[in-house]
Design a binder for these strands. Structure first.
Length: 226
DNA sequence: GCCAACGTTGGC
DNA sequence: GCCAACGTTGGC
């Protein structure tokens, strides 16, 4: 089992506490809502698969360029995903409650855009799908891992991950720049990207897309780069 | 429960 | 490398 390290999501000051174990009630494991205005990934675990049209779409960020975090390279590009056995990998390292809650809302076979962040050319590279629903992220217990979380206990893991599988590259790269231009225009016209999380929740490394957002972005594939 | 200090994200 | 945006921590 490969374990690509991604760097996803903000672990603000995750390390310094640990020993003091202060733990205010901000221990918001379940609270931090998963809601982002217009999307609705808020399924109760109970609602399993009842129905077909309950599918959600996602955008997941990863860094394609080498960068050391606590001495470990956190690079993980879409090419790295393609190079994995079966082109599958676990999406570990998410240390932000909102992002984690989205991971937990993901269902088998749902599709996600693979977004390259913190790099020369940020933007959407391709498509992947969820092949294993949320389960404990083992890296939270590994002391040498950049995303080690000493406050998380084995019998009550804080952080989750999913497994993803490469589906395909987009027919062309959709840059952040292009998405931003659309977003700006759509804010005025009420178009599909008017409230895309990429811009309204800037730092979220795992975010939901509405059907309209997803379809619109896919339609860009067929157009000329702007 | 407020909020300043601090740390991270991620585009530029 | 800079730094704006913003999430988290922890004193009060």
């Amino acid at each position: 089992m490969p374990r690509p390290r991604k760097r996803l999501a903000g672990a603000a000051g995750q390390d310094k506490k640990g020993l003091l174990g202060k733990r205010t009630k901000t221990e918001n494991t379940e609270n931090t809502s998963t809601k982002l205005e217009n999307s609705s990934p808020q399924k109760t675990p109970a609602s399993k698969n009842c129905g077909k049209n309950s599918s959600n779409y996602w955008l997941m960020k990863s860094e394609p360029e080498s960068r050391l975090e606590k001495g470990v390279d956190v690079k993980f590009s879409i090419e790295d995903l393609k190079a994995q056995p079966k082109q599958r990998a676990c999406w570990d390292g998410v240390r932000n409650y909102q992002a984690r809650n989205f991971l937990r809302a993901m269902k088998l076979e749902e599709e996600a855009f693979f977004y390259h962040s913190n790099c020369k050319q940020p933007g959407i590279m391709g498509l992947m799908k969820i092949v294993k629903e949320a389960y404990p992220d083992h890296t939270q217990f590994e002391k040498s891992n950049p995303h080690y979380d000493p406050s998380s206990k084995e019998d009550n893991p804080k952080w989750s991950m999913v497994d993803v599988q490469f589906v395909r590259m987009l027919k062309r790269f959709i840059s952040l720049d292009e998405l931003k231009t659309c977003h700006q225009a759509h804010k005025a016209t009420g178009g599909p990207l008017k409230s895309m999380a990429l811009f309204t929740h800037q730092r979220l490394s795992v975010q939901p897309l509405t059907q309209e957002e997803f379809d619109f972005i896919l339609s860009l594939e067929e157009t000329e780069p702007s």
